[in-house]
Nucleic acid binder design. Structure first.
Lengths: 334, 334
DNA sequence: CTGAAAGCGCTTACAG
DNA sequence: CTGAAAGCGCTTACAG
């Protein structure tokens, strides 16, 4: 049984109302009294109960964050940025994972509702705008980051996938490549769709048709991508450049190429997406589209806290990234 | 104003006590009544308030987790394991970062106390046993994972760093290396100390003295390690093998060796520590000591939940890892 | 300046 | 089976 405001009141010989005020530095309480009471509180090892306070203030100073998995370094950076901003604002972060499972995602958001968090941010949501009915009754503001479900949502922040893939494809085109493939992620939902679109846009700007057999899909992971890559590399006419859905896919492609003794970048140029930490460490180092993960996390939290404070905020923020050119791309030989 | 138990009581024409019981499936309430009330609750969009419940039950079903940084992939895996077990047990995770700053660590733990979390786990603590006075009053169980401060702590789980480094060094010795260096992390506190000890233990088992100039320290990161590595590689008699504090240091060493045109593993064998994701992707792929990060997170949470349930648990769990042999080590070329 | 009172939204003995 | 009552630990009008 932790010591409560009442215990201190008894020790100090005042009412618990006075203790409450003294502890919160109310201007009503004279400094001497306040100090005496605070001293007693300290000596008795008093720790205010945030749950009791929350019940009356109707504020928990807590933000619920849901990501697909925290083991994914991509999400780690995003969450780190969110935590930082939340912390600066005096908020705690309650973290939950959705495992990219829509059902679990809804369960988690509902549990956040029960905990009466002051706001929620969901990364890579598979539920998207379906939240509206669930949350509007609780009036808990929510912002989505990289919403995967499509459909408009009130407050969201997303990476410009079309533009990112466009930059990567354009980079290859400007290097002189004309036979360019796309290695996608069949589980990528919206982001795969958008990256493919950016890829196609660049090709058509150069008046190049895109070929069905040069669009293959892995699963966004190393092995799955390597399998898909084999189709690409084994086919009759081989592309000289490949735009990959993400860095993991690009690394899978690199592995497949190594196995087939296809030299990168001499015989094959490869671009990734994300700029995960390993991208710079791979050999050759990956040319890739960097997503400002941490900054996206910060921005998402900033918007949410603005909303929580009762102010209004931008609806749909779109963020662009930079192409980082490294050793995995070069002009085609011949 | 979310709908409360009272609102439902009014709608159902019963007392709020009855609503409370019906909602919790109390055996006192006949099934028909319970169903009718639950139906009304559903229709009115009722969401139970966990904060009100916590106030009376004195349980929050929340666990506080503090890590140095969630952007560190190492911690990401650990936290993922913790979250998984917590979730299975019906607990939420409140996440906070310490930035490896003892002051912030204490602040964070104190705020967890105010939130009345049911338990706390701290990774890589810089405060360690100093927590005791802070928490014993609140009677919140705490378990430390990879405590960096040293000193005994009641409940802890730690990786066996001595044994890990011993395995790495022994591997080099068995390959035939006799000139072996250690590239440490001057910020590594306890873990650096222990890994150096394991390294020395293996050397002395082989009757080899260790030389002062073959023990250098970086900062556990790529660049810092690369700088320290230059000392090692530039010195008169060069080692043929290096045991590194962690994978990042080993990768820094790899970079330095590449720059100096020293072939790995032909002219230099390198071992890492951790088996971070990039370790397998590097060229050559890193031989390293794998830490079962996720499992350590799971185990820490298991112990904590046992403690939370009122049962007793093992005090100090030590976990060993496996040496993963890859391409960065080979017999010395005389 | 200070205290008594009400209330936040629940749970749970206690009495019927 | 059901309700009235007390209480969890706070905050904050309201009255003095």
């Amino acid at each position: 049984m932790p010591v409560s405001i009442k215990d201190i009141a008894r020790l100090a010989g005042v009412s618990h109302s006075t203790v409450s005020r003294a502890l919160r530095d109310s201007p009503l309480i004279p400094a001497v009294t306040a100090q005496r009471i605070q001293q007693i509180a300290r000596e008795s090892g008093y720790t205010a109960s945030a749950v009791a306070r929350s019940l009356v203030t109707r504020k928990t100073q807590a933000i619920g964050v849901v990501v697909t998995s925290i083991a994914d370094p991509f999400n780690g950076d995003v969450v780190d940025g969110m935590e930082e901003v939340a912390n600066e604002g005096g908020y705690s972060v309650i973290l939950a994972t959705s495992q990219a499972d829509p059902g679990r995602e809804v369960t988690v958001v509902r549990s956040f509702g029960e905990r009466r968090v002051d706001g929620i941010v969901v990364a890579s949501s598979r539920v998207g705008s379906l939240y509206l009915p669930l949350l509007q009754e609780l009036k808990i503001p929510i912002v989505l980051i990289n919403n995967q479900r499509g459909g408009d949502f009130i407050h969201s922040i997303a990476f410009d996938n079309v533009h990112g893939a466009y930059q990567a494809a354009r980079h290859l085109l400007e290097l002189g490549h004309r036979r360019i493939a796309y290695l996608g992620d069949r589980l990528g939902l919206h982001s795969d769709h958008d990256r493919l679109a950016g890829f196609q846009q660049a090709l058509s700007e150069f008046g190049l048709p895109w070929r069905e057999q040069w669009v293959v899909h892995g699963d966004g992971k190393l092995e799955g991508a390597a399998v898909a890559a084999r189709t690409l590399l084994g086919s009759g006419e081989r592309p000289t450049g490949v735009v990959c859905y993400n860095d993991m896919s690009a690394l899978g492609l690199l592995e497949a190429a190594e196995k087939e003794k296809i030299a990168v970048p001499d015989a094959l140029s490869v671009t990734g997406f994300d700029d995960i930490f390993c991208a710079a460490l791979a050999r050759p180092a990956l040319t890739t589209v960097r997503q400002p993960r941490r900054e996206m996390g910060r921005e998402a939290m900033r918007i949410l806290l603005t909303l929580v404070s009762g102010a209004s905020a931008e609806n749909a923020v779109v963020i662009r990234g930079d192409l980082i050119v490294r050793g995995s791309t070069a002009p085609p030989q011949i």
